[in-house]
Amino acid sequence: MPPEDSNDPQPTDEQLLRRWHGGSKAMGSQLFQRHFSSVQRFFRNKVFADDIEDLVQQTFLGCIEGIAQFRGDASFRTYLFAIARRRLYSYLRARNRSKEREDADLSVTSVHDLGMTPSSAVAAARETILMLKAMQRLPVERQSLLELFYWEDLRGHEIAEVLDIPPATVRTRLFRARAQLKEILDEMLRQDGISQTVDIEVHLRAMRSTP
């Protein structure tokens, strides 16, 4: 391991994580400020607004608790999103268990199916609201896949690691997710009596800057 230099103006994520683990709250805070937005964005369109705070907090705490599993060769973001994804899944499954006996299969079940009404749809442009609502109707795994790819710029093998799926399948899964999103969106527009085609790629890319 290289010697830690506290004067380094740009410590790496790994350095910050290890020093936070060593007891420096200031370093932990820096790491948190760096990645808060991404993690918050990951949960925002999937869970009740009131639960976001806990999930984000658990995710960051999870980085410390699971530090033994952190392999320096994986990027910190992959590690972080993998924790966030596991927190999300157990949260959604716990919610579902209070209603159903069987565990939900999140590769086929959507947050919409699970009765979630995330609040992020309030007060945004009409197209954005529609897109967000359509995404909530995708299976959770597919929704996450699209978000990680378009919003977080994760690469194929990183996404595979976060979602715990074979790397070779990412490309086809992306293709299917987009096709299904387009189907859902067209159906929603049809119900609104609007005949309009939406360029999904453009919108997905644009939405990452939504506050």
């Binding site: 709250k25 200031a26 932990g28 805070s29 948190f32 808060f36 705070e53 907090q57 960051f60």
Partner: peptide, 9 residues
């Protein structure tokens, strides 16, 4: 962000 930072750090 403020709330979480307050509790964690």
């Amino acid at each position: 962000q403020r709330n979480i930072a307050r509790r964690l750090f």
